[in-house]
Amino acid sequence: MNSTDSLIDQLAQDGAAPRPASLPRFVAPLALAMAICAIGIALVLEAPFIGMAINGPGPMLVKWGFSIALLLLSGFALWFIGRPGKATGATMATLAVPFILLAALLGADLAIGQRAFPGETWQRCLAAMAVMSPIAFGGAILAARWLAPTNLHRAGLVAGMFGGAAAMTAYSPHCPEHGMAYVAVFYCLPILTMAALGWLLGPRLLRW
């Protein structure tokens, strides 16, 4: 018996039944990362949703609509990319949808009129994004490592996008700023930066 046959015998002893709780094992690190971001922001900052009292629900709905859509899409994409043998081009393309919609809103907003930019809290916003995005990115990396991504750049990029979207979802209730230009510069750019970092780090962090 050669060494490959011996290996097959060893592996066969474990059986082929899928490991239990595959989906919860994937979702748990993502949920934990989200919870850390939300709790961390809530501990440091006060008065969530204060912007709604000033500007109405519109800006908050746009921010959460964008970030939660991106959060769900990137989580789904990560799950999909982690399953070898599936074409992932269309999945990746869907990640552009929230950005396209936001770009349309930005165009409309700019056409309507000027708004104060960058506002008064942009530094706090950037700090929150810079601190929380890597935490959520770490959760997404842990989740992806449970799966079997074969395109590590792509999986890293999606994990980075998840990290940025999670940070935005956690912080935006505390953000009194409004205007699509603000969202584009102080949310979208950090998210895309985190995605680019994920693309670079993916092959190192996700190798299996």
Binding site: T4, L7, A16, P18, R19, S22, P84, A148, W208
Partner: peptide
């Protein structure tokens, strides 16, 4: 390499959805 592939297939077998063809998944790994 064959042995590395077998170990990977075994370790990541939970990423093969039930009812999905095995071959594309296996060759991707």
């Amino acid at each position: 390499v064959v042995q590395e592939c077998l170990i990977a297939i075994h370790a990541k077998r939970h990423t093969l959805d039930p009812g999905r063809p095995v071959a594309p998944w296996m060759y991707a790994i």
